[in-house]
Simulated scan of single mutants.
Amino acid sequence: MSSLLGEKIRRLRTGKGYSLDKLAELTETSKSYLWDLENREAHRPSADKINKVAAALDVTPEYLLSERDVAPDEKIADEAFFRKFRTLDPDVKKKLRKIMDAFDEE
Results as ranks from 00 to 15, higher is better:
36 D>K: 15
61 P>E: 01
60 T>A: 02
34 L>Q: 04
56 A>Q: 06
63 Y>S: 12
52 K>T: 09
48 D>Y: 13
45 P>I: 04
45 P>R: 00
49 K>E: 09
49 K>L: 15
58 D>Q: 10
54 A>M: 08
52 K>G: 10
48 D>A: 09
53 V>N: 00
62 E>C: 00
51 N>D: 15
49 K>F: 08
61 P>A: 00
48 D>I: 14
47 A>L: 14
50 I>E: 07
56 A>L: 05
44 R>H: 14
53 V>S: 07
33 Y>R: 08
35 W>K: 13
58 D>T: 07
63 Y>Q: 13
38 E>Q: 02
52 K>L: 11
39 N>A: 08
34 L>T: 00
59 V>D: 10
61 P>K: 00
59 V>P: 07
42 A>W: 00
57 L>D: 09
44 R>G: 07
43 H>C: 09
43 H>Q: 06
49 K>M: 10
59 V>H: 09
36 D>E: 11
36 D>H: 11
39 N>Q: 04
31 K>L: 06
35 W>Y: 13
55 A>K: 15
40 R>K: 15
50 I>G: 02
41 E>M: 04
45 P>K: 03
51 N>W: 11
33 Y>T: 10
55 A>G: 13
43 H>L: 11
39 N>H: 12
34 L>Y: 04
47 A>T: 15
42 A>E: 09
53 V>L: 04
36 D>V: 07
45 P>S: 11
46 S>W: 00
36 D>G: 11
55 A>M: 10
53 V>F: 01
61 P>Q: 03
43 H>G: 05
32 S>W: 05
52 K>I: 04
50 I>Y: 05
40 R>V: 02
59 V>L: 14
56 A>H: 03
58 D>M: 02
47 A>I: 15
39 N>K: 08
54 A>R: 00
36 D>Y: 09
61 P>R: 01
52 K>Y: 12
